[in-house]
């Protein structure tokens, strides 16, 4: 479901808006598609990287009948902001050498922090798009983009010594985080991700609801900073 004509058009429209915003150095979109007052200027990603990120987010969580997509939820902004955290600099990971590769089930063994994975991974995806299709990822048709993302997910590409699956998993994990974390981190704009899912956010008090079995919870989401959906 979700890639029907009308929904596709809607998704494509937001994608184009997002990309146009990126080229103009960032326009944050509200869930209704209105341009927010202050355009977002990516701090970590350059224009080509940002274009990839916006396009990839739009494919990973497209806008459709289920609810808003990653672009409307400002997931690219979330990821850009995350890049300026100890996490993205690899400061929460054990990063002492030697770096020895082994069986996949023994876990991540590359010397790269998330920032490095994005730098190398996006360059690799774009190079691959250019070789196969003559254009960067963001300029390709959505079905072609999906094919490239699927190839990355299966691990059939490599970006230097980074298997594509490593980059893909990094990206997918951060996209999920951006769509469904508290808006304080820059994504989940308007709590659109939570509303779509039926998650009440920071309400965090179900004293009088715990034994109302099977009933729909009537209150909308709230965020840490006090926004109400």
């Amino acid at each position: 479901m979700g890639i029907g004509g009308l929904r596709f058009t809607s998704s494509r429209r937001q994608f184009i808006l997002g990309l146009a915003g990126a080229v103009a150095c960032g326009t944050a979109l509200t869930p209704s598609g209105r341009a927010a007052a202050a355009p977002y200027r990516p701090q970590f990603f350059n224009a080509a990287e940002w274009a990839f990120l916006v396009a990839a987010c739009d494919r990973l969580i497209p806008a459709d009948a289920s609810g808003p997509g990653a672009v409307a939820l400002d997931v690219p902004r979330f990821i850009d902001r995350q890049m300026d955290t100890p996490y993205a600099r690899g400061e929460q990971w054990y990063m002492s050498g030697p770096f020895v590769q082994g069986a996949a089930n023994l876990g991540y063994q590359l010397p790269y922090a998330p920032r490095d994975l994005y730098r190398h991974g996006i360059a690799g995806m774009n190079a691959h798009a250019a070789t196969r299709h003559g254009q960067p990822f963001a300029s390709l048709a959505p079905t072609v983009q999906d094919g490239l993302l699927q190839a990355a997910e299966k691990g059939s590409l490599a970006f230097g010594d980074i298997p594509s699956v490593v980059f893909f998993e990094q990206l997918l994990a951060n996209v999920m985080e951006g769509a469904f974390s508290d808006p304080i981190h820059g994504g989940n704009t308007g709590m659109g991700g939570w509303t779509m899912l039926g998650f009440p956010g920071a309400r965090a008090d179900f004293m009088d609801w715990v034994d109302q079995y099977g009933a729909h919870y009537p209150l909308g989401s709230v965020s840490i900073s006090g926004e109400r959906a």
């Binding site: 890639i3 494919r59 990973l60 969580i61 497209p62 459709d64 289920s66 997918l172 899912l197 998650f199």
Partner: peptide, 16 residues
Amino acid sequence: PRWGSAWKAGMIDTYR
């Protein structure tokens, strides 16, 4: 699938 519209629908149904 782990992403895209089919993921969205399946994930929401599963959560609820």
